[in-house]
């Protein structure tokens, strides 16, 4: 739905084929093959399995359901839930709904972008964080809100948001050090 969205274009450049185990996907397709209108549900399940929708998955679905790959791709790009690129280990979903907007969510976004050195829709090079926005997470009375892997945080200030990110980062590097020591 982003007609001249830069997001889609940058996705395409990264859109190369990866070798994947498709057996889990095949099981889902077998289950849903005869349900009419199940394409979206299959894509949702596939994304649950692989974390995103790699090209090989889209092609496999098209082949199995005997529909054009263009149609599968069309659906996958119409709905914002679907991602064609791997997400970070920590998915940051920053709310840009009305209540969060009037309570300063844009400033939090720019701070997060500065902290992570990525833009909205991107993933950090170490694969740790990806930043996306949502239109209302339904906790408007705690605005501004962000959700990291399903856990909501609010009300945020720019400082609080940075602290949360740094805490996660610190936790990650600790566990790395621990791993090496073993």
């Amino acid at each position: 739905m982003h007609f001249c969205g830069k997001k889609n274009r940058s996705e395409e450049t990264n859109f190369f084929e990866v070798q994947l185990d498709l057996s889990a996907l095949m099981k889902i397709i077998e289950e849903k093959r005869h349900e009419k209108g199940s394409l979206i549900a299959i894509l949702q399940k596939a994304q649950e399995i692989y974390g995103y929708l790699p090209l090989s998955v889209l092609k496999c679905i098209a082949r199995e359901l005997e529909i054009k790959p263009a149609k599968v791709y069309g659906i996958a790009t119409f709905y914002t839930q679907f991602r064609l690129q791997a997400a970070g280990k920590y998915q940051i979903l920053l709310c840009q709904g009305t209540a969060c907007h009037v309570n300063g969510s844009e400033r939090i976004e720019s701070t997060l972008c500065q902290e992570l050195k990525i833009k909205r829709g991107e993933t950090t090079p170490d694969g740790l964080f990806s930043l996306e926005s949502a239109a209302c997470l339904g906790c408007c009375s705690l605005a501004p809100v962000m959700m990291i892997n399903g856990q909501a945080y609010g009300p945020l200030t720019a400082e609080k948001a940075v602290t949360i990110i740094r805490k996660i980062k610190a936790g990650e590097s600790l566990s790395l050090v621990g791993g090496e020591a073993q």
Binding site: M1, G37, S38, I40, L43, G74, I75, F78, T80, Q81
Partner: peptide, 21 residues
């Protein structure tokens, strides 16, 4: 699957049928 327009009733039905909303 994250499309505001799918709240509109005919788009919602299209989405239920597995199409673009």
């Amino acid at each position: 699957a994250g499309a505001f327009v799918c709240g509109e009733e005919t788009a919602l039905m299209a989405s239920l049928e597995g199409e673009r909303g």
